[in-house]
Structures are given as C-alpha cells and as structure tokens.
C-alpha cells in the first residue's frame, strides 16, 4: 500500500495560485472601493434604476405612453416611477404631504404638443391606495381659481394650465407648460382617456355628505390625514367651510372604528384643548357636547355613533352652536337612514 500523499502536479499548482490571485485581487478592489464610499454614488445609482433617464431618450417615440395619447400629442420622455423611498426625488419637500396620506406609487411622464414647438405637459399619477387617501391630497391642494371639471369625476377641477382629479385610488395631475385653450382641450381628452382605460372600483366618501348644505362651500371640503388642529391623535378628519350671516366657520367630522373610540377621541380632544388653556363651557343644547373657549374662539365637540364631529375655531359662539346643531341633525339622519 502506498502511504505517501501524492504531490500536486505543476498544472494544479499554477491553477491554485491563479485562483488565489483572483481572490486577493477581488478583496483588494473591495477594500479600495469601500475606503472611498460616497453616498452620492448610491443616489445616482438609485435614480438610474428607479427613475430612468428621460434625457437619455433622443428618439422619445420609442418610449411607451402611460396614457392613450390624443392627436397632436406625443411622448417627450420615458415614464418614471417613484415609491415611498424615492418620492422626494421627484417632488422634494412636498413628499411628506403624500406619504402621510398613504402614498404607494407615483408614475409620471412628459408629453409634447406637436402642434407647437415649445408646449409640453406632464402627467403625475399618484396611487394613494384608496379613494379617501386620494381625496386627502386632492382636497388639501385645491386652488382658489379651481373650475369644476365634472367630466372627470365628482372630485375634479381645472386651472388655467392644469387639471387635477381623483379617479378611484388615484390622484392625478396633468400640468401644461403654458396656458392656452388648445392645450386645455388636449389635456381634457388625455384625462378622459386615462379614466376610460383605468377601471377602478366605485367608492363613496360618505363623510362629505354629512355636512349640511346651508351655507356650505362644497369646494372647501378637505380631508386632513393626520394631526388635525394640532392634535396628534386626530387623523382622517373632514373639514368644511361655511359662510353664515357674514361669518366664516369650519365644521368637522371623522368616522372612527366604533362608537366607543369616537367617544374616547372626543374626550381626548376636549382634554387637549383644556391642557392648552381652554375653558369648558355649557353643551349649547347639543346632547353630550362640550363647548371649549380657547384664545377667544370656540370649539364644539360631540360624538354620535361612530362619528366625532363639531365646529372648530369659531369667532362667534351662537353661530358655532347653530352650525353644530345643524351638523348633529344631519349626522343623526344619516345614522337613522343607514341599512
């Protein structure tokens, strides 16, 4: 029996040294790269992967359009996609507004108007996961000169150079580089095409119907996703503006998970106001309500079934009570009419 181990051949030795050399070289490269770590590299790499590079599209016709394009509109840049981690790469400081409202994904793309040399437009399709979330970001950015655009849905308006609307869980902005009737018409066609090819489940935002109609400014209804009135427990709060007897008042309503949580939240909000110098007054003749005077203004809070509702920062107590009663009646009717 041969008991001596066989020596490796010359070929095996060379091969082994070759493999070891490659490993040492790899380790060296890793060490050198690690010692020159630069967060900007990660930034650029992430952009390239997630956002694409619009400017790298010399023949933009090669890019796919996110939306069916009408006549005289063509693709200008490739679509871009952003998630919660990269949203600020597109909209910078406004990202927090969307993130706090449940943002999932943004797709955007630029189109050019082929009938003019310079005009272009950009579509921003924000997937907000639910219609309520979409309504939150839609309502909190409404423009003063908004003109309702019912062809795009109940929550839709246009300004001189842009269209804004809610379509199911999507909040969509279509913004042109200039204002003209021609570009408005093209944007309207493009927006209607988006709605047509994007089927969504029908959802109803029930809270908006709870606000009594007398004196209501329907365009003012806003959904505050978080920290309403500076109270951190107050989320998903609908606020509406009223013009009554020459005064402007704000009413609010929010649906909670159960009557108990609504009652508890009403009590917590009352405590919050009192902790900041508020003074509890009477109930104004509204069952289980409380009126809090704070900094020469009046807040009225009450809970009804799963709803917490009231009036916020009213200058006149009597007008605030009148509006709160009206709101209470409207909510009671809605509760009674519920199947």
């Amino acid at each position: 029996m041969n008991t001596k181990a066989k020596n490796p051949s010359r070929f095996e030795t060379i091969l082994s040294f070759g493999i070891l050399s490659v490993l040492v070289l790899t380790a060296g490269v890793i060490l050198v790269r690690q010692s020159h770590f630069n967060p900007a590299v990660l930034q650029l790499a992430a952009d390239q992967v997630i956002s694409g590079s619009p400017a790298a599209l010399p023949a933009s016709q090669t890019a796919v359009a996110l939306v069916p394009l009408p006549q005289n509109v063509s693709v200008l840049t490739a679509p871009e996609t952003f998630g919660p981690d990269t949203l600020s790469d597109k909209i910078d400081g406004k990202a927090e507004l969307y993130l706090s409202a449940g943002f999932k994904r943004l797709q955007s793309q630029r189109f050019s108007d082929t009938s003019t040399a310079e005009t272009w437009m950009e579509v921003f399709i924000f997937d907000m996961a639910s219609q309520k979330n979409a309504f939150a970001v839609y309502s909190s950015q409404q423009r003063d000169d908004a003109v309702p655009s019912p062809a795009l849905g109940r929550y839709a308006y246009r300004t001189a150079n842009a269209l804004y609307w809610v379509h199911g869980p999507y909040y969509v902005e279509l913004i042109a580089s200039e204002a003209s009737e021609a570009i408005q018409n093209r944007m309207q066609t493009l927006a209607e095409a988006f709605n047509r090819v994007t089927p969504v489940a029908t959802e109803t935002i029930t809270e908006t119907a709870l606000f009594p109609e007398a004196g209501l400014d329907p365009q003012s209804i806003t959904l505050i996703p978080a920290d309403a009135f500076g109270f951190e427990k107050f989320d998903r709060v609908f606020v509406a503006e009223y013009h009554l007897n020459g005064s402007t008042l704000s009413a609010f309503v929010s649906a909670r998970g159960s009557p108990e949580t609504a009652t508890d939240l009403a009590a917590a909000y009352r405590t919050f106001l009192l902790a900041f110098g508020g003074r509890a007054l009477d109930d104004g003749g509204i069952r289980d309500a409380v009126i809090v005077e704070i900094m020469d203004e009046y807040d009225i809070i009450f809970a009804r079934d799963v709803f917490i509702a009231g009036v916020h920062a009213a200058a006149d107590k009597n007008q605030a009570v009148a509006l709160a009663r009206s709101l209470d009646t409207s909510i009671e009717e809605a509760i009674r009419g519920r199947p």
């Binding site: 400081g93 423009r143 908004a146 300004t159 001189a160 150079n161 842009a162």
Partner: peptide
C-alpha cells in the same frame, strides 16, 4: 405662494 416647492398651477 401656495403648493410649493413644486407648484404646478399658474394660480399658485
């Protein structure tokens, strides 16, 4: 004056 820093509408 509103909806910054991106704006979007001339009415901003």
């Amino acid at each position: 004056v509103t909806n910054g820093p991106t704006g979007g509408s001339l009415s901003d």
